[in-house]
């Protein structure tokens, strides 16, 4: 994965020099370890700052919504699926984009790694399979596979589904993964147990809306949480309001979520709200055999009617 960077720079410089795009969206090194930030290269000189490693988990598709110019964008498997969703939803036109596909082997989970060490982590050095974490008085080498983000560990679309350029050979897709283990566990609970489970899960939520802001699907001009007349959901930390927010946000992502993990990654208190979107993803797969963002020419199940609809009452 680390070897992609030369190719990324080469392609970006070429695209910018040929004026095929006005900017290329990628990553640059962040100010703290394991936190790469988005970088918008508008000239060939800017390209120098691009990096690519296992800390590029942010979903770059978020920056495409309603853009007018021509854009080159780096796209991992999940990003590319979100780009497809954006194209389906008319948030960007396909011919505005030069998609630079990046086959991905998973991003590492910063929170998991930080939890392993007492002190602050000063430096993280990465090679193809391992990462070495250095800090005040400790140094440890970890296998990347053990510290992947959970959504990456169960990812089945690592290669970009849509791309114009490719920075490396396609990687092998994982086939024997159980994507919905945790969802099934929750499904087995009785309604009251579910309520308690979710209340506990969401208890630390501080309603900062980082999950909404990091999500490439959450582009509504006015979010339902910000509407005040009528006010659908209170703004405080009342458990009912918190769960209303998370349930509704998940429903807005039904049939669209690609489980890119941006929400969970951005959460300052580490809530795994992906269980909600994953449940809906599972339903879409089981009811409509639908996986979001695979093909820009197929309409999503929630805006089409098929005579074979699984629900009886509608026939």
């Amino acid at each position: 994965m680390l070897s992609y960077i030369d190719k990324i720079k080469e392609i970006s410089i070429r695209l910018l020099k040929e004026c095929r795009v006005e900017m290329v969206i990628g990553f640059r090194k962040g100010t703290v370890p394991m936190m790469n930030e988005p970088h918008f290269a508008k000239s060939p000189e800017d390209v120098e700052n691009f990096v690519w490693d296992s800390n590029c988990g942010i979903n770059l598709c978020n920056y495409l919504t309603n853009r007018g110019e021509k854009i080159g964008i780096l796209a991992k498997g999940c990003d590319s699926r979100n780009i497809v969703t954006h194209i389906i939803e008319n948030k960007i036109k396909r011919d505005q984009l030069v998609i630079i596909g990046v086959p991905c082997k998973g991003m590492i989970d910063k929170r998991k790694i930080s939890a392993m060490f007492e002190g602050e982590i000063g430096e993280v050095i990465e090679n193809e399979n391992n990462i070495t974490v250095k800090g005040d008085g400790f140094e440890k080498t970890l296998n990347k596979k053990d510290v992947l983000q959970q959504n990456c560990a169960i990812c089945i679309h690592r290669n970009p589904v849509i791309h114009d350029e490719l920075v490396g050979d396609l990687v092998e897709e994982q086939i024997d993964v159980d994507r919905y283990e945790d969802v099934r566990e929750i499904e087995a609970l009785a309604p009251q147990e579910k309520a308690t489970h979710f209340e506990k899960l969401l208890e630390p939520c501080i309603r900062c809306y980082a999950c909404r802001n990091a999500c490439p699907l959450c582009y509504c001009p006015t979010c339902f949480t910000d509407e005040s007349r009528p006010q659908w959901v209170g703004k405080g930390q009342d458990p009912t309001d918190v769960s209303t927010f998370h349930f509704l946000r998940a429903y807005h992502c039904a049939g669209r979520c690609t489980d890119c993990g941006a929400c969970e990654r951005s959460c300052p208190v580490g809530i795994n709200m992906r269980v909600f979107t994953k449940k809906l993803e599972k339903d879409c797969l089981e009811l409509f055999e639908w996986e979001a963002g695979l093909d820009p020419d197929v309409r999503p199940p929630l805006d089409t009617y098929r005579p074979g609809d699984p629900d009886e009452f509608i026939k």
Binding site: Q192, A195, T196, S243, I314
Partner: peptide, 13 residues
């Protein structure tokens, strides 16, 4: 989400 499925009903009349 902690709500019994039967609390929400759909029909077509």
């Amino acid at each position: 989400m902690g709500i019994e499925p039967d609390r929400l009903q759909f029909s077509w009349v």
